[in-house]
Simulated assay, not measured.
Amino acid sequence: MLYWVMKYVLLGPLLRVFFRPKVRGLEHIPAEGGVILASNHLSVADSFFLPLMVPRRITFPAKREYFTGTGVKGTLKRWFFTGVGQVPIDRSGASAAQAALDTCVRLLRAGHIVGIYPEGTRSPDGRLYKGKTGISRMVLEAGVPVIPVAMVGTDKANPIGSKMWRPYPIQVHIGKPLEFSRYQGLGGDRFIERSITDEIMYALMELSGQEYVDVYAAKVKEAQAA
């Protein structure tokens, strides 16, 4: 209920007025059934505009810390992130990655749409970076298609490091579903997992028009920080 209130009553109308978002390719989103929306990641704003423009509810895995704060501020953050369709994932400890994977697979098998950023973090410079293979493990375990999504303009509306958003027209480009049923039963094969991930990233590159960099974005950010 809170998700739909945020989308159609509170946050959604404001975003539509100030950013005039447009979407193309909605016909590629199935009316029902589990599917992964794999998006490029330019800005925090991506997680606002993608759910706004897709009729079905999208669930994003998010850091557990967003939901565990105390006091008024903690309550407001928990309410907000729940309202925009995020579910808490514990990313600490050796089994954290598997726990996150299991949560997403459970949602997909139950017929939900799960939103994933294969790069693992926001692009530091607007280019598209190497995808992590966690998405391919979800594909192999849940047996669902992947729909590539290109967010355009969110980095202009919400540049990295900015505290205030700037009015800027946002576009959401949704591509044709990618089917990987030919790989079923081959889970655990690193070559297969990398092949699936690279195919997804290639589709994102074509859809977004971004320059592709065959390096993990997280490593680039670490180098910049150093």
Rank of each mutant, 00 (worst) to 15 (best):
S195C: 10
N158Y: 15
A100F: 05
V149E: 13
W4P: 07
A218F: 13
P21S: 03
D90L: 07
I160H: 13
G188F: 02
A223M: 12
G185I: 04
R190K: 04
G188V: 00
K221T: 13
L178D: 06
W79L: 15
A157K: 06
I196H: 03
C104K: 00
G143L: 02
G185A: 08
G74I: 02
L108I: 02
S136L: 02
D102F: 03
I192L: 01
R109E: 15
K163C: 06
F18V: 04
L128T: 03
L15G: 02
V44Y: 15
M205V: 04
T59R: 12
S43V: 08
I135R: 01
P51E: 12
V215G: 02
Y8M: 11
K7F: 11
V35Y: 15
A100E: 03
T154V: 07
Q98W: 05
G134M: 01
H112M: 14
A99C: 00
T59F: 15
P30V: 09
E119Q: 11
A142Q: 04
R122S: 13
A223Q: 13
P61L: 14
T133D: 06
D46F: 12
M205F: 05
I200D: 07
S43F: 12
R56E: 14
F48H: 10
F81S: 11
G134C: 01
M164N: 04
D155K: 03
V213E: 13
V220E: 14
A97M: 06
T133G: 03
P124Q: 10
L15E: 06
A100S: 14
T154N: 08
N158I: 00
N40W: 10
F67Q: 08
I170C: 05
V54H: 13
M205W: 06
Q86D: 12
G111V: 10
L37N: 08
S43H: 08
I170P: 03
V172S: 03
R91Y: 08
K130M: 07
E119V: 01
A226I: 07
R182T: 03
L11C: 14
G69H: 11
I58P: 01
K163A: 12
S95V: 00
R106Y: 09
A218N: 02
G153E: 06
S208N: 10
I200L: 01
P21T: 04
G153W: 06
